[in-house]
Design a protein around this nucleic acid. Structure first.
Length: 245
RNA sequence: GAUACAUU
């Protein structure tokens, strides 16, 4: 089964999800038992191919065969829905997981937050973080960054600021992704000065802006019709040793 | 056997 599972993984990486799934039949025909790892690899294959419904169907197949999914299995299925921004389906997997007596871990909450972020629902992403913290599960900065990015895209700098503060209270250092979300939020609000101030502040805190951050800043100036300012930012970026792409 | 982050 381990040998066949290696094949499933390889096919999954090549986005040959249907072929990966078919290998399970080969395992059975060889008189071997399809285990949790093999099923998980198939779910992963569907996830990589952007086929969340098929991924979820594998969970049903497992139930029918009496094979218990583990936390990785559930998280992988959840990620498949998260990638599609399908919040309802992602929550359903989380529910299914709890019903199976499987404890959600940091990856579970991160995938849930990602689902809400992909759906453009920052509040839901923050709720997922809150749930994790209530459950005593420590979340990574990445989890916050997904919620921050959603607020950034929505042009809500004040919400970004509040979340940055919350990160710090939890002992997490906002990184370049976190700060770039603040810059993005200001840019989306048509507030180049706010964007500039955010960049100043991140530097003051020892976080260097990267090409994404500068691009957002250039955009903020450009959108406000300040072409001179936009050109100036480009110069600053080069001076900082960040190369345009 | 996984995993998720930003600019256009």
């Amino acid at each position: 089964t381990i040998t066949y599972t290696a094949l499933v993984v390889a096919l999954g990486k090549a986005k040959e999800a249907a072929k990966a799934h078919a290998v399970l039949g080969q395992i059975e025909r060889a008189g071997l038992r399809v285990d949790c790892h093999a099923y998980t690899a198939v779910i992963k294959a569907y996830e990589k191919s952007g086929m969340p419904a098929e991924a979820e169907a594998v969970l049903d197949e497992m139930a029918a065969k009496g094979v218990e999914p583990n936390v990785v299995t559930f998280n992988t299925a959840l990620s498949a829905h998260a990638g599609a921004g399908d919040v309802a389906a992602a929550e359903a997997v989380a529910e299914r997981m709890r019903a199976a007596g499987c404890e959600p871990d940091a990856s579970t909450y991160a995938a849930l937050a990602g689902a809400y972020a992909a759906a453009g629902e920052p509040r839901g992403a923050v709720d997922a973080i809150s749930q994790a913290e209530d459950a005593g599960v420590a979340v990574s900065p990445l989890c916050y960054n997904m919620a921050l990015a959603a607020y950034g895209a929505a042009g809500q700098p004040q919400a970004c600021r509040a979340l940055l503060e919350r990160m710090r209270r939890k002992g997490l250092q906002p990184n370049v992704f976190s700060w770039s979300a603040v810059v993005h939020a200001a840019a989306q609000c048509g507030d180049p000065d706010g964007a500039r101030a955010a960049v100043r502040e991140m530097r003051a805190r020892g976080v260097e802006p990267n090409v994404y951050t500068y691009t957002m800043l250039i955009n903020a100036h450009g959108a406000a019709g300040d072409l001179e300012g936009a050109a100036r930012v480009l110069g600053e970026m080069r001076a900082a040793g960040v190369h345009p792409t």
